[in-house]
Design a binder for these strands. Structure first.
Lengths: 197, 197
DNA sequence: AAAGGTATACCGACCAGTGAGTGTACACAA
DNA sequence: TTGTGTACACTCACTGGTCGGTATACCTTT
């Protein structure tokens, strides 16, 4: 078996550097140094940089999902307000000076020329989880068009990640939150067949 | 004066390679070779790779804007249908095997660790232009909440770029287009103060 | 019109540094 | 004694960027 704590130190170092600088901008040497080991030891735990990148995203998967769930659970009001709260919390988080957008989206953008890359698989799975979770929240409220609505909200989510990062302006999250509220309300009063294409 | 045609050959080569592979994945040597010149000559026309990257995005600015304007102008129906047509055309374009998402967004994601990078400035300006143009289209229809609505639609636009690329699934453009239609309709029946935060 | 100067546009060769990934040896624990 | 985990030293291709030099064209000045 692996020495867990070393492996975790490596992934944590990778998370710090890859999120801050990007994938190709960070060398394996830099990750090893940040983790306080040699590169050769890193290659004992990971068979390639590509695998390390996938592990980096995997490392972010659960904490991310949990934050979303918490924000939603802690919010009061109707469904649209609780979904809106997710965007408000994101706007808050994006004010932190170390915030650099969504690691999953940034990585997938950087590796867009390698479709089957393990990190892209992890990233796509993460985003699907978010979408599915949103759909479950919506259908728990008795709405029938949950999947379509969840997709639309997810589009606003990822759109605000991209735009807030580009302009370094967290207020786009609030704009997106408002749009999400409108969509939820519209979905409640309109039959699903009109929302779908 | 510069020899225009050489400079243009360089930018065109940069466009081809940077869009296909990403910024850091493409060396200056590779661009020079694609342009059929030596690296030394490339550095005669551009003072650094960073400048070349900015020129690459600048090269995409106008054609992109024109496509959007054309799609909107050629579409029939009400405002929501003409805006929806943009998304439908994007869905169409994204089916092309060479489609790799939005070059502006991908570049800004890759260079997110260099906020003042000339290419990011160009990218942000391009996206602002799109947003402003959308707002002008909306207010031309006599709607008062044009800026807020344009922002929301732009969020859906960039969101679908990111998501369609991640999953390699152009259908997200159509989902986003449907959401945009809903937002336009809601904006017509609701006073602006309720749309804004 | 000849001579000289200057700016444009290009190239081959090179530099110091960095990239991902390896071969081998050594320490420790079961 | 066998397997796990770590380190040093290494390969070799490639990186952005630069040096010195050349061919051509145009613009003066005589």
């Amino acid at each position: 078996m692996d020495n867990i704590s070393t492996r975790e130190r490596i992934v944590s170092a990778a998370n710090k550097l890859f999120y801050r600088e990007g994938i190709r901008a960070v060398s394996v040497d830099a990750v090893a140094e940040e983790a306080g080991i040699t590169k050769r030891s890193l290659y004992y735990h990971f068979k390639s940089k590509d695998d390390l990148v996938a592990a980096y995203l995997d490392y972010r998967d659960l904490p991310n999902l949990k934050a979303f769930r918490r924000w939603f659970a802690d919010a009061a009001g109707r469904l649209e307000d609780r979904i809106g709260a997710i965007f408000d919390n994101l706007a808050e988080a994006a004010q932190h000076p170390k915030w650099k957008g969504c690691g999953f989206l940034r990585t997938s953008a950087e590796l867009a020329n390698m479709p089957g890359h393990p990190a892209i698989v992890v990233g796509a799975a993460h985003k699907k989880k978010i979408e599915d979770w949103l759909a479950s929240c919506i259908s728990a409220e008795g709405m029938e068009n949950a999947e379509a609505l969840a997709r639309q909200i997810r589009l606003l989510l990822d759109g605000s990640f991209a735009v807030a990062m580009l302009h370094r302006d967290p207020s786009y999250f609030r704009t997106a939150g408002e749009a999400a509220r409108v969509l939820v309300r519209a979905g409640r009063t309109t039959p699903a067949t009109e929302i779908l294409a």
